[in-house]
Amino acid sequence: MHEWDAVVIGGGPAGLMAAGEIARQGHRVALVEAKPSPARKFLMAGKSGLNLTKDEPIGALLAHYGDAEDWLAPMIRAFDAQAVQDWAQGLGQALFTGSTGRVFPTAMKGSPLLRAWLAELDQLGVTRHVGWRWTGWQDGQLSFNTPDGPQWISPRATVLALGGASWARLGSDGAWAAMLASQGVALAPFQPSNAALSVAWSDHMVPHFGAAIKAVGWQAGHLTGRGEATLSARGLEGGGLYALTPALRDGHALYLDLAPDVAAAELTARLAKPRGKASWANHMRRGLKLGPVKTALLQEFGRPLPQDPAALSLIIKHLPVSHAGLRPLDEAISTAGGVRRDALDDGLMLKALPGTFCAGEMLDWDAPTGGYLLTACFATGRWAGQAAARYLASVTTR
């Protein structure tokens, strides 16, 4: 039996944020993580540059949370892009903002920020346990499998920050869903978000595996975007596609604009010029200047290509991309689904389990990459931590 006022289960960004907020109010906090070290997915994300947030007006920021915008809005307004930057700088991290508004640590990785963050939690008196896997409740107590055998804790407040259901090897395996469902907590099914596409390429695409598709436009349903993607043996992946995942999940067709900065009429005019003795293929190459990767994609998805300039221009601007659907859930960068809004009160406390709060990606919200994922994890972790601290204060005074 251990005596703590609050236990935070999950050592990712939301859990770390919640633990700090509770400890600042003078409560005894234990932070419990199943893996041998905390924040593994956070560190993995930082390997390609830790995108902390997106520096843009709050209205534009909130618009990226789709159906969850209204209920996440108070939390993100309370810890918006500027607040994220102020917090990271307060931990001694120099930041820079890229041309698109994305904010990164100057170090371009997550480990320096994580070390400073954990040091701050140590100073606040937060106790950390790693290698402790939560297995649910036993006789009203939190039950854990640990390196030293089973352990049970009876805190007065619990914050669950257990992640979604992707990248299980880093800790987000979604195993908590069955435990919460057994307690009457309403859940939305997990679905992949920010996911790659499976494509069965023809042999002529093999030389282009690993190549980046640049300066293109994407469309699926009502969603559009600009951004790069990468060709791989398994299909297509990259930020240009990820924002379209909600529409692709719903079965909308995917279209690629190979020349987003050139109007169809201009393409038609170029193709209609006399080609003399040049072959049609050389005429296309000189007139369109698509480059080898885009030309290969045009051949892959557009054959047989019409020689009518207007018809070909329409294909170039609206090329249907044949694919076999999203890659498996565990490969997705993030997941939609999880604890539903109607299962929670305004402080992110579970209605079915008073004193138990939820935060981070285990909540049912969805957002594209580009700083939006981490911003909401920080914001909901902070919000749940503050609500848990208020709850502890209220039960202490009863």
Rank of each mutant, 00 (worst) to 15 (best):
A6L: 08
G12F: 08
G15N: 04
G15E: 14
L31Y: 13
V32P: 06
S37H: 14
K41I: 07
A45W: 01
D55M: 09
G59D: 14
L61H: 11
Y65E: 11
A78P: 06
F79P: 12
F79R: 11
Q82W: 10
A83S: 11
V84Y: 06
Q93V: 00
T100S: 14
R102M: 03
F104M: 02
A107Q: 00
R115S: 11
L118W: 09
A119H: 09
A119Y: 03
A119I: 00
E120F: 01
Q123S: 09
R128L: 15
H129N: 05
H129W: 15
W137N: 04
G140E: 12
S143F: 01
P147I: 14
R156H: 11
T158G: 06
V159S: 05
L160G: 05
A161V: 03
A161R: 10
L162V: 05
W167D: 02
A168M: 04
A175I: 07
S182D: 15
V185N: 02
V185Q: 10
P192S: 10
S193R: 12
L197T: 04
S198T: 05
H208R: 04
F209E: 14
A211L: 02
A215H: 03
W218K: 06
A220T: 09
G221S: 10
T224W: 09
G227P: 08
T230N: 01
A233C: 09
G238L: 03
G240R: 06
G240L: 07
L241Y: 08
Y242H: 10
A243K: 13
D250E: 15
A253C: 03
L254I: 09
A259K: 02
D261W: 03
P274E: 14
S279I: 07
R286S: 12
L288D: 10
A311Y: 07
S313G: 14
P320L: 13
P320N: 11
G325P: 02
L329I: 07
E331F: 00
M349D: 07
T356A: 08
A359V: 12
E361A: 02
L363N: 05
Y372P: 10
Y372H: 12
L373Q: 10
R390H: 12
Y391A: 05
S394F: 02
V395S: 03
